[in-house]
Design a protein around this nucleic acid. Structure first.
Lengths: 129, 129
DNA sequence: CATAAGGGTTCCAGTAACAGGAAGGTCAAG
DNA sequence: CTTGACCTTCCTGTTACTGGAACCCTTATG
């Protein structure tokens, strides 16, 4: 299977797949013509990577997860630990975004949004509350 | 006032301030010795930028906001429009993170987290639900 | 057989928003 | 005069790719 087919099956772009090979996340063999030769197992890895990335795992976290994915003797606690750490990061980001949301929607609410130059949003941003 | 003092008053690092000059967000004059000379007005701009960045506005959004900040004839509706667009982006990110959170916490919940190799998290990521 | 379309390949540059660090100029104090 | 704290510019690295150029391979068609 060439990279185009692997791309279609995994949902990752060819560019991304080449990049993943570049950073040694995957190591597909080559055909005589130099084309990458993907097999079902490689595609599974790509799908795995796609899902993990979609869930916000960083490339390095994906590398760890992939190593555990391939290790038949892994302990599920190792995986759980990575996932839990990541979940906490997600929670932190949500909290931060909610703070931003509250502040910004408060400023917007106070703004008339008309043709007059007086603007509470800019005032709020400049620190003159 | 030198960059160190401007940094202390604005809360931005000297590195960041130099970068902002690089991309023409600010244009402080220079003393005879080549040092940047900041005045109160420059510091106000830096504080403004710091707050806007903290609220998640991109540099380009900040550039627009700064132009409006300096324009005495601006309409508050212009500012409101930028802020509302940004608020929607924040809401989108929150939704996305909440989806990720739900999926991941579901996977974690199913995982025993012990020494056995069986791991529902990896199963979930590989697509074999 | 020539060629054109639609794959594939590598390599280089750019993105966002800075941070780190090197090499060197400046200034005030002791 | 030297020390140390500033300041300067310039170069590199970060994250996870995307876009584009230049070029090779394969297959179908006139």
């Amino acid at each position: 299977m060439n990279i185009g087919e692997a791309s279609a099956q995994s949902g990752l772009s060819a560019k991304t797949i080449r990049y993943y090979e570049d950073i040694s996340l995957i190591t597909p063999p080559r055909d005589a013509n130099g084309y990458r030769a993907f097999h079902a197992q490689d595609v599974h890895k790509l799908i795995f990577l796609n899902r993990a990335r979609t869930l916000g795992f960083s490339i390095e976290e994906c590398r760890d997860l992939l190593a555990l994915y391939e290790d038949q003797n892994r302990a599920s606690s190792d995986v759980k630990h990575i996932a839990q750490t990541h979940l906490q990061q997600i929670e932190g980001k949500i909290t931060q975004l909610q703070d931003m949301h509250a502040t910004l929607s408060h400023l917007i609410k106070e703004c008339a949004g008309d043709n007059r130059p007086n603007c509470p949003i800019l005032k709020g941003l400049s620190g003159n509350k």
